[in-house]
Deep mutational scan, measured.
Amino acid sequence: TTIHVGDLTLKYDNPKKAYEIAKKLAKKYNLTVTIKNGKITVT
């Protein structure tokens, strides 16, 4: 599972963990989490 945050690309083997991290990042920086085709993007 890949999380895209701006220019950063973070890879995680565990999709659930990746989603949790994405949610935390989104909350911290007041951003939105988008999931599309298995890719998690924080914008």
Results as ranks from 00 to 15, higher is better:
39 K>R: 13
28 K>L: 11
5 V>N: 02
4 H>S: 11
30 N>M: 07
42 V>Y: 03
36 K>V: 14
11 K>S: 13
14 N>R: 03
15 P>T: 08
11 K>V: 15
30 N>F: 07
24 K>L: 14
26 A>Q: 04
37 N>R: 07
41 T>M: 14
14 N>S: 13
16 K>P: 03
18 A>W: 06
36 K>P: 01
8 L>Q: 04
7 D>R: 15
20 E>L: 13
33 V>Y: 03
33 V>A: 03
21 I>V: 12
36 K>L: 14
7 D>Q: 14
35 I>F: 08
1 T>G: 08
5 V>K: 03
15 P>W: 15
16 K>W: 14
22 A>D: 00
6 G>V: 06
12 Y>S: 04
28 K>Y: 10
7 D>N: 15
11 K>G: 06
40 I>D: 01
8 L>I: 11
12 Y>M: 05
16 K>Y: 12
1 T>N: 08
21 I>H: 06
6 G>T: 04
23 K>F: 14
8 L>P: 02
38 G>H: 07
19 Y>T: 03
21 I>R: 04
3 I>D: 02
26 A>T: 02
1 T>E: 03
34 T>Q: 11
22 A>S: 02
16 K>V: 11
41 T>V: 12
20 E>K: 13
13 D>M: 08
18 A>P: 01
11 K>W: 15
25 L>S: 00
42 V>I: 14
41 T>K: 06
6 G>I: 08
34 T>P: 00
3 I>K: 02
27 K>S: 08
10 L>Q: 03
9 T>M: 12
27 K>P: 00
33 V>M: 11
7 D>T: 13
37 N>I: 09
10 L>N: 03
10 L>R: 04
19 Y>V: 07
6 G>E: 04
27 K>C: 05
38 G>W: 06
12 Y>A: 06
33 V>W: 04
23 K>S: 08
16 K>H: 11
5 V>A: 03
14 N>K: 04
5 V>W: 15
33 V>Q: 00
43 T>W: 12
1 T>Q: 06
27 K>R: 12
9 T>H: 11
20 E>R: 13
31 L>F: 07
1 T>H: 08
32 T>S: 10
20 E>N: 10
13 D>T: 08
35 I>R: 06
19 Y>I: 11
11 K>R: 13
43 T>C: 09
6 G>A: 05
8 L>R: 07
29 Y>V: 01
28 K>N: 04
21 I>L: 09
40 I>P: 00
16 K>E: 12
13 D>E: 08
5 V>M: 11
39 K>T: 15
22 A>Y: 05
29 Y>I: 01
11 K>H: 15
1 T>L: 12
16 K>L: 12
12 Y>N: 02
11 K>Q: 13
12 Y>G: 03
38 G>Y: 07
5 V>E: 02
32 T>N: 08
31 L>P: 00
13 D>A: 10
39 K>E: 15
30 N>C: 08
15 P>G: 06
8 L>Y: 07
36 K>F: 11
9 T>F: 10
9 T>N: 07
7 D>Y: 12
11 K>N: 12
26 A>M: 05
8 L>V: 10
4 H>P: 02
12 Y>P: 03
23 K>Y: 13
22 A>G: 02
14 N>E: 05
36 K>N: 12
35 I>N: 04
42 V>S: 01
42 V>P: 00
4 H>E: 09
11 K>Y: 15
38 G>T: 06
35 I>W: 08
15 P>F: 15
19 Y>G: 02
24 K>S: 09
37 N>K: 08
20 E>Q: 14
9 T>E: 13
6 G>N: 04
1 T>P: 06
23 K>C: 11
3 I>V: 13
10 L>K: 04
38 G>M: 05
16 K>C: 11
1 T>R: 06
15 P>Q: 10
36 K>Y: 11
39 K>W: 12
10 L>C: 12
32 T>Q: 10
4 H>K: 12
9 T>W: 09
8 L>E: 03
28 K>E: 06
32 T>M: 10
17 K>S: 07
8 L>C: 15
12 Y>V: 10
6 G>W: 12
3 I>L: 13
12 Y>I: 09
27 K>I: 10
38 G>I: 03
38 G>C: 04
9 T>G: 04
30 N>E: 03
19 Y>H: 06
22 A>T: 02
39 K>A: 13
15 P>A: 12
25 L>I: 14
34 T>Y: 11
24 K>A: 13
30 N>Q: 08
24 K>D: 05
34 T>W: 06
42 V>C: 05
14 N>F: 06
17 K>D: 09
12 Y>E: 02
24 K>C: 14
42 V>F: 10
15 P>D: 07
13 D>H: 06
